[in-house]
């Protein structure tokens, strides 16, 4: 049995709560806000561009349907540099064949990384590459189209060389001792200097 006084108090409290709620969240305001958000989503979808889809149907995939992802892979033959001792201003060339063994075309760039123990020679070398002329790489001297070179710490080399999928290109890798190389570089050997030929999907 409910106490009539308690029931009356509860009803009074419920009415007060409803009145307060109505005054804080009137139905029109809630509906208006909902409409505003809906309109905003619509506008956003229109302005943002792109395609939107919601897949909601199912179809068993036939076992013969195969989706294969592409791949990017490069292979470069090792450098055989002429045994000529280097001096300031001298450029030596070494051929390297770079093969795109992947399934997408790759555009080439390069970067030079320091050996574990840099010395006055490695710090004064500039290394670059260009497509080899038809006659092949000369042992030394300038090329008709001199390759851009990178030194340690310089930005990566950008080239316009693109190798199609499955294709290959013959490069002349240039190794130059800067004309300003210090005398401390004399008789030194640079070991561990690495040219990384990077292929990016083009």
């Amino acid at each position: 049995m409910t106490n009539p006084t308690t029931l009356a108090t509860l009803l009074l409290a419920m009415r007060r709560t409803r009145r307060n709620s109505r005054s804080r969240f009137p139905l029109r305001a809630v509906l208006g806000t909902a409409f505003a958000i809906l309109a905003a989503v619509g506008l956003a979808v229109i302005t943002a561009g792109g395609t939107y889809a919601l897949s909601n149907s199912q179809q068993p995939i036939a076992p013969v349907a195969t989706i294969t992802a592409g791949s990017a892979a490069l292979r470069a033959t090792a450098l055989v540099v002429p045994p000529t001792p280097m001096y300031p201003g001298l450029t030596l060339f070494a051929p390297s064949t770079v093969t795109n063994t992947g399934t997408v075309a790759l555009s080439l760039s390069g970067s030079l990384s320091a050996p574990a123990a840099p010395n006055a020679l490695s710090q004064n070398l500039s290394v670059g590459f260009a497509v080899a002329p038809a006659a092949g790489c000369p042992a030394s001297g300038p090329l008709a189209t001199p390759p851009a070179g990178a030194t340690l710490g310089s930005p990566d080399l950008k080239t316009a060389i693109v190798i199609p999928a499955g294709g290959q290109v013959s490069l002349c890798v240039s190794i130059s001792l800067l004309p300003t190389a210090s005398a401390a570089a004399q008789s030194q050997t640079a070991t561990g200097l690495t040219l990384t030929v990077l292929g990016a999907q083009s």
Binding site: A72, P83, M86, L106, V173, Q188, T194, L198, A200
Partner: peptide, 22 residues
Amino acid sequence: GAGVATASWTASGALTVPATAG
């Protein structure tokens, strides 16, 4: 939502560059 996600594949080959100064 307007950001366009891009991805590209890369591959690389490392070449050791030997050099000796005279």
